[in-house]
């Protein structure tokens, strides 16, 4: 490991760039200066905090703490999914469906990768488990949020079409065919695009990080390919689960469209 350590001064220096962006947003009347600074502040605090937590976790914590941190990450991803929706399910349904979909896809895939692919002892070793889960959840969250937003937006806009199809005796599943397809597709596209562009347009962050930290490029690339497959499948299955559960929730047992379940 021959990485050059960064000092606090180095970070302060780079923060000038963000400060410059915030300042130039003022004369342009973007009304985003506050948001930019808040985001920069949050990213600093949150990452420092997770740095300390990981340091402690790697050195001394048992499986219980690792599980707790995993659930904390999952719930935050769930909250983020429901925060990004323009139209929302009433109550906790949006949060619940998003969280459940991510749990059902990310966690089995993580355990599969740790036990069958990486195969280290113990399998839950946090140095592997936590970063992998973070990448999986982050990408699955993006797919789920996009697919869900498209689903609710389209159902709201096309409610008359859906109801006309119900009047003609279609089942809720038939009446939702096009909307479901389009929603799942919009959740999947970013990951597919990332796989298409990997290596020729963009150098993925995790691989770049490994190389910066001194890993041989080919080792870093192999990890990156594994990660691409993981997040591709994770965000794909997660989006399918969330869109399917969400679509079901919009109809009742008589297969009536119940838009009053949205706010």
């Amino acid at each position: 490991m021959n990485v050059i350590p960064l000092t606090a001064f180095d970070l302060l220096l780079t923060s000038l760039l963000i400060l410059a962006l915030a300042l130039s947003s003022l004369p342009l009347r973007l009304e985003m200066a506050g948001q930019i600074l808040l985001a920069a502040g949050r990213t600093t605090l949150q990452l420092l905090l997770i740095g300390f937590i990981l340091k402690w976790l790697f050195s001394s914590a048992g499986p219980g703490w690792i599980a707790l941190l995993s659930l904390f990450m999952l719930f935050n991803a769930g909250r983020e999914v429901s925060r990004r929706q323009k139209r929302q399910f009433k109550g906790l349904w949006g949060f619940g469906i998003g969280t459940l979909s991510m749990f059902l896809t990310s966690f089995p895939m993580l355990i599969f990768t740790l036990t069958m692919v990486i195969n280290n002892q113990p399998w839950y070793e946090p140095r592997y488990a936590i970063p992998l889960l973070g990448m999986l959840l982050g990408n699955t969250m993006n797919g789920v949020a996009l697919g869900f937003d498209r689903l609710l937006h389209n159902v709201w806009q096309q409610r008359q079409i859906i109801e006309n199809r119900l009047m003609l005796g279609e089942t809720w599943f038939e009446a939702m065919t096009e909307i479901r397809r389009e929603s799942i597709r919009s959740g999947l596209m970013p990951t597919i695009n990332a796989m298409m562009a990997a290596g020729i347009v963009s150098l993925p962050g995790m691989m770049t990080g490994q190389i910066l930290a001194g890993s041989p490029p080919l080792e870093a690339v192999k990890y990156q390919i594994m990660i691409m497959f993981l997040i591709g499948a994770g965000s794909g299955f997660g989006t399918i689960a969330a869109v399917s559960l969400g679509a079901r929730r919009l109809f009742d047992s008589r297969q009536r469209l119940r838009l009053e379940r949205l706010s």
């Binding site: 119900l166 009047m167 003609l168 005796g169 279609e170 089942t171 008589r254 297969q255 009536r256």
Partner: peptide, 9 residues
Amino acid sequence: GPEWRRRVA
């Protein structure tokens, strides 16, 4: 629901 709506159009 769909069976009913095919009969009661």
